[in-house]
Nucleic acid binder design. Structure first.
Length: 766
DNA sequence: TACTAAGCTCTTTTT
DNA sequence: GAGCTTAGTA
């Protein structure tokens, strides 16, 4: 660095933040508590490097989401100008994909490799399991995928897996001793197809640096300063790549918060942050402990929560913000009542307290929980936006066109080929495809190679001419791609493949929307080609790489009207809202029943709760339901243990209960209920017999559900009913109208049950 | 071969 | 509630 002047923008920072920005040389770990201005420090740090004469090309900043990278780049650009465009900034996956495409030949790929998403990977694994004649009940594709993924994240290649005694032993113990063979075949098939999965992008990057000293040397000198965001979420593979990259310069700055490590299921290793000091003995540690985001109450409550964890680094988070309101707790009878109560609470906040919809967020543990809130919000017209779930790029029609494009770039792409070889239908049925796969495996070539030589295989019979047509169509597309840009090629492919016509002919509402989505994708490709803010190439290959690594959160919102945000807690990381509702706080749901096996897992759930709570700036509301319809069964639920872990001093004593204010604290903190840590998963006895004759499918022609309980129209509180199993009862409350409505019914003057009307065969007596 | 209805299973979080 | 498989029909 040439000059040591202080940049003018430095005065925007507090003393510790300044320190973190100015300490540019050598290893630095910034432990940044929630709301402590972590992004600010990162952006200013990069700006300061550039201010002091470091070339943008020599700075590498790695993040976990595209959004974080994009935002940071925009903020830096505001400070230092357009030079910020030259920064190497992006997600681990996208930066490494870019480098790998450039260095592909070194590891036996071409720069036209395509990327398998999770679905593609699982589908291939499933195929392999079938080919191996293994029991797919034992060898579940998702399970094997996770096993392979975590091996890759730990830098264990297929050929090494067999030598890992502990892995092999645990596979053997689970009766899945062929896992190693599946991994080997999977890796072979991906390589043969010229394809990388998400984990390969990391593992191959590591392989590249490890086996090619010249390449390592090149990037070590290129990236003079390396910054890593959310360091607590890095896995072993990412950790090793970083370690190699900075070995020469040792200018590594990691920013993270061990209390917010919530991705261990994806291989994240909290040890990476806990042992930074051991890896870099000459390091500095700076702790950002002032929270600028939340009220004193919320900061104190969150500190309370995290103090229950054993594994953590010492931090004292404090704030000079006002005391703020106490935390509200909402207890509902059922999940749909929970939705209704929160909808009312939001309605109240917006109309009486002048809160904007966009300042409100609903956070939940699982995506499936969004449904009840959607229903409740729609009923009283609260605008909302759901993040996660099925994203644009996961829709069938989008994946179909993308599959065509992937095949154009890389005809070896097996999953893409299987997806569209007979879509729209062109008479190449399952039997033919099976034959193709069989031949391909026999000759150890790709399916595409077999199609190329289809004439040589008599077994293919009448299908040969159809395969020839398919081959010619695709060859035509490939030639097109050589001379035209991504946009024109895509349009041509959409038309000539028959995909566009096929969707156009479908006049059902879904069909129309599918057609619109394809049009939108084509527009998106056009924009990609016309976009001159990034320096990237505009060919199909570059576009596909972008798309493969895109997530729902990265999508631009077309309509900017204020909306309530709904998302999983995982997706909420890095965001903040004035009003936050953390919902579904029930034992076995949050903490998840999957995480109750060990202390370590429970601590991660607690960190997740910590993340949720610390998203809130001013008002925090926690809610739970005492019964919930989950996985096809109505369950009795106990409140989450996390609620009891908050000091009652921070909790509002006027509690909401079924829409009314309840003065008593005892109903929450009394003897029954919360204090009791025992979990119960009592199934209310809705016998399978009642579901026997009820099909959950909707009729495709009319869109109507197959079964509607005709006796129950107009069911209201006070009515006497006869239930097939429980006998006579009195309706206490009906939650909503329509097919999914639930009724609380009192049977035998004592036993109250919440019934989903769809499943409850009852008669109205009066 | 293509399509559909019915039946079965599984169900946390995601770059 | 969704995805997948199977069986049956066009």
């Amino acid at each position: 660095m040439q000059n040591n002047e202080l940049p003018p923008f430095i005065n925007d920072l507090d003393e510790t933040q300044k320190e973190a920005v100015l300490c540019t040389e050598g290893p630095l770990m910034v432990l940044a508590g929630a709301g402590s201005g972590k992004t600010r420090v990162l952006t200013y740090r990069i700006a300061n490097l550039m201010f002091n004469g470091v070339d943008a090309f020599n700075i590498l900043a790695l993040t976990f989401t595209n959004k974080a990278a994009k935002e940071m780049r925009a903020r830096i650009e505001k400070i230092v100008g357009p030079d910020a465009r030259n920064l190497w900034m992006g997600t681990f996956h996208s930066v490494f994909a870019k480098i790998l495409r450039f260095e592909a030949e070194k590891i036996g790929y071409t720069s036209n490799f395509t990327i398998y998403d999770t679905d593609d990977s699982k589908s291939l694994i499933k195929t392999i399991i079938k080919e191996f004649n293994l029991d797919d009940k034992l060898y579940k594709p998702a399970l094997i995928y996770n096993r392979i993924s975590s091996a890759k994240n730990n830098l264990i290649a297929a050929e090494e897996y067999i030598n890992m005694a502990d892995l092999m032993a645990s596979d053997e113990a689970n009766g899945r001793k062929k896992t190693a063979d599946i991994y080997t075949e999977y890796a072979k098939r991906c390589y043969k197809s010229g394809v990388m999965d998400f984990d390969d992008l990391l593992m191959n990057m590591h392989k590249l640096l490890k086996n090619h000293p010249d390449v390592l040397n090149k990037y070590q000198h290129k990236f003079k300063y390396v910054l890593v965001d959310e360091y607590q979420d890095t896995n072993h593979c990412q950790y090793m790549i970083i370690k190699r990259l900075v070995a020469a310069s040792r200018n590594i700055c990691v920013v993270g918060d061990d209390s917010q490590s919530i991705y261990s299921f994806r291989g994240a290793n909290i040890q990476n942050i806990l042992s930074f000091s051991r890896d870099y003995p000459e390091h500095n540690i700076i702790k950002l402990e002032q929270n600028y985001r939340s009220s004193k109450t919320i900061v104190a409550a969150s500190g309370d929560i995290i103090s229950h964890n054993k594994e953590k680094l010492e931090k004292k988070i404090w704030t000079s913000n006002p005391e703020g309101e106490k935390i509200n707790i909402i207890k509902a009878m059922t999940d749909s009542e929970e939705g209704k109560m929160i909808a009312n609470s939001i309605f109240e906040a917006v109309s009486n307290r002048k809160v904007n919809y966009s300042e409100i967020a609903i956070l939940y543990r699982t995506n499936a929980q969004s449904r009840v809130f959607e229903e409740a919000f729609r009923k009283i017209s609260i605008p909302y936006r759901i993040y996660g779930g099925l994203s644009f790029y996961q829709r069938k029609e989008i994946k179909d066109l993308i599959a065509y494009l992937r095949l154009v770039v890389n005809p070896g792409d097996e999953e893409a080929l299987k997806r569209i070889i007979n879509y729209p239908t062109r008479g190449i049925g399952n039997t033919t495809i099976e034959k193709l796969v069989f031949i391909a495996n026999q000759y150890n070539v790709s399916i595409w190679n077999v199609i190329e030589k289809a004439n040589h295989f008599e077994v293919l019979g009448a299908a040969v001419s159809k395969l020839n047509n398919f081959y010619m169509m695709l060859t035509n597309f490939r030639q097109m791609a050589l001379v035209k840009d991504a946009s024109e090629t895509a349009e041509y492919v959409a038309k000539q493949s028959g995909l566009l016509k096929h969707l156009h002919d479908d006049k059902t509402p879904e069909g129309v929307s599918r057609f619109e989505n394809i049009t939108e994708l084509l527009n998106g490709i056009k924009e990609f080609c016309e976009d001159d803010t990034n320096e990237n190439e505009k060919n199909l290959s570059a576009f596909l790489q972008d798309v493969a690594l895109l997530t729902d959160k990265d999508q631009e919102e077309e309509d900017n009207s204020p909306k309530v945000t709904m998302m999983t807690i995982h997706a909420s990381k890095g965001l903040e809202f004035k009003y936050v509702y953390v919902v579904g706080l029930e034992e076995n749901l949050f903490p998840s029943h999957m995480a109750l096996q060990s202390r370590v897992e429970l601590e991660e759930e607690r960190r997740l709760f910590y993340v949720a709570v610390t998203r809130a700036e001013q008002v925090l509301t926690l809610s739970y339901a005492s019964s919930r319809f989950r996985h096809g069964t109505l369950l009795h639920c106990d409140p989450s243990r996390f609620i009891t872990e908050i000091d009652p001093r921070y909790i509002n004593s006027t509690l909401m209960y079924r829409g009314k204010q309840m003065p008593s604290k005892e109903s929450i903190f009394g003897t029954e209920g919360l204090g009791d840590k025992k979990t119960s998963l009592t199934k209310l006895n809705i016998q399978p017999a009642f579901r026997k004759n009820i099909s959950l499918n909707t009729n495709k022609q009319t869109g109507e559900p197959d079964f509607v309980p005709d006796d129950l129209t107009g069911l209201k509180a006070g009515m006497r009913v006869l239930h097939q199993r429980f006998g006579k009862g009195v309706v206490q409350e009906v939650s909503a109208e329509g097919i999914n409505s639930k009724a609380i019914v009192l049977f035998n003057e004592s036993e109250s049950k919440t019934l989903v009307l769809r499943f409850a065969k009852m008669k109205i007596l009066d």
